[in-house]
């Protein structure tokens, strides 16, 4: 495995190469895509990107947690968490690409 870390910069570079826009505008578009996905999720909407995966927001009930270091009980407030379920296509590609 190569184990590089890509960032927004790499995504905007890919957009820059693919479409004839400036680097600046490419970066803004990447940001705008992430922004629209985030906004929909914050509204509680599911975001379903075919052949990529599905982001969904789930509610978690309040519970009593424990500080693992001190053993002390602490209340955990109800909260919303985001889960990502990869599509079959992504799972297959990731499995095939990383086969040893």
């Amino acid at each position: 495995m190569s184990e590089k870390t890509l960032t927004r910069m790499d995504l905007s570079e890919a957009v820059f190469r693919e479409v004839g826009l400036s680097r600046n505008e490419s970066a803004e578009l990447v940001e705008s895509v992430l922004g629209h996905i985030s906004d929909a999720l914050v509204e509680g909407e599911q975001v379903k990107i075919s052949s990529f995966g599905t982001f969904s927001v789930r509610g978690k009930a309040a519970r009593i947690g424990r500080n693992p270091k001190t053993g002390e009980e602490v209340p955990i407030q109800p909260r919303r968490v985001l889960t990502f379920r990869p599509s079959h296509l992504m799972k297959d590609r990731v499995a095939a690409g990383n086969k040893s």
């Binding site: 495995m1 190569s2 184990e3 590089k4 870390t5 890509l6 960032t7 790499d10 995504l11 890919a14 957009v15 693919e18 479409v19 490419s26 578009l29 990447v30 895509v33 990107i49 052949s51 990529f52 296509l89 992504m90 590609r93 990731v94 095939a96 690409g97 990383n98």
Partner: peptide, 20 residues
């Protein structure tokens, strides 16, 4: 543009890379 972004993320993971 939109397709490139998702494609790039999938390609990175298929190479074993992270996307942060």
């Amino acid at each position: 543009i939109v397709n490139t972004i998702f494609e790039e993320i999938t390609n990175a993971m298929a190479r074993g890379d992270r996307v942060e």
